[in-house]
Design a protein around this nucleic acid. Structure first.
Lengths: 226, 226
DNA sequence: CAAGGCACTGAACAAGCATTTAGCATGCTG
DNA sequence: CAGCATGCTAAATGCTTGTTCAGTGCCTTG
């Protein structure tokens, strides 16, 4: 009934498919992102305009479907990052995705993955940390970012806080099952931009007492900076 | 078989119960915290040493049980905060709970609630924001904390990042179903303390270019501080 | 045209779940 | 003692879920 495409089939692993298989995967990414991974296969099938049995036919199981979704978004991230190497774009992959409205479903999928944990979440998180660390290292070299006693830990801290606050914002302010992620991202960045820039530019404390006390505590002598 | 208690019964709403009802609620808080709210009623009943039917008898439904748990932890938070008013304790309720090992199950329950959203998460989050805002206002008055152009937004930002990063840390590093929350909190604070203090004490950027650009963009003139 | 493979479906199946039902024991009250 | 409420349980019920089954129609190939 819905054979809308006559693209050549490659028996083992069709790279480029606009077939029902791709529609199901797209519907799955959208549903997973909007409603979380608990969403029934029936809902995904309905959204793709196919029967639940066809989902199993193509992906074997719900877990297989999710694996396919993971792989798909992972490849997207790789391509985005490949671009950013040549463009010297100084944003994390998440920010680049969030900047493009049509990619909103993927951002939703990312956030759900982070919420649920698992392999893809790990991989994406490490990419995020890496992006931030590179960004900060470049800034350090250019003199716009302060050096850290532990740059890796700082990058991890910032990544955790960044993604985590987005998650918190989502669950606090958009509890419903149907979510417009463009709106979420807009409201979120609107609320965090000022405090982020304030704290990153000016700090939070007026003196270094707590930092120095901690450095003494862990046995690292406090430094003598301006 | 297990009538271990002869405390006086108050027909309508027993305030102080060491009965099976209380055991079920305790088991529920522990299970919800350790394994999330998807945990079957059977598991909770087993842990409390009762039948699943008794859970329904006492709480009506699984949702009713969760409501009772919410109310219980909410009351605990109220008491903690009442204490902290008289003690002038400068920590958020979450930090105070986390400081007491025997309260670890409650911290786990908090984090799960934040993950799942809902009324109690909202309430706890607002408490958290309030705690932080008071803490910062006091610091501001004492001269240890910098003033902000929007103290409320800053407190929300910090609360979201704080709780969010704990959540991220949990799902990234402790994916298993059985979680020792004391260990989680220990590892988490070990990793974030240095970068937190660095950024809060020294900032992240060496100059105010981005902040000033933003202030101009939103129509607020950048200030002339040192 | 015959044969076979492929995408696809409706209907059933099986498991896990929350919840209900019917009943057992115990202890209190008349 | 009877009557009855209470705390509690084993077993059944019904719903939702992922998954399987037995096809059906279409397209290509011989």
């Amino acid at each position: 009934m819905l054979n809308m495409c006559s693209a050549p089939r490659r028996p083992p692993e069709p790279e480029e498919d606009l077939t029902a298989r791709a529609r199901i995967r797209g519907a799955a990414i959208a549903c997973f992102g909007q409603k979380g991974f608990g969403v029934p296969v029936r809902t995904i099938a309905e959204r793709a305009g196919v029967s639940p049995a066809l989902v199993m036919h193509h992906f074997g199981s719900k877990a297989g479907l999710r694996r396919a979704c993971d792989e798909h978004v992972r490849n997207l991230v790789y391509e985005i990052k490949k671009d950013s190497v040549t463009t010297a774009d100084q944003r994390t992959f998440l920010d680049r995705f969030a900047g493009m409205d049509e990619y909103a479903p993927y951002v939703a999928y990312f956030v759900r993955s982070f919420q649920a944990g698992g392999d893809i979440a790990h991989a994406l998180f490490e990419h995020m940390v890496e992006d931030i660390e590179n960004y900060l290292a470049a800034g350090e070299e250019a003199g716009t970012v302060r050096p850290s006693r532990d740059p890796a830990a700082r990058a991890r801290f910032l990544a955790m806080g960044h993604i985590g606050s987005l998650q918190m914002f989502l669950t606090m302010h958009f509890p419903g099952p149907d979510i417009d992620f463009r709106e979420v991202m807009r409201a979120w960045s609107e609320r965090i931009t000022l405090p982020t820039l304030e704290i990153y530019s000016e700090g939070l404390f007026t003196n270094r007492a707590m930092l120095d006390a901690y450095l003494l505590y862990v046995g690292d002598p406090p430094e003598e900076e301006s």
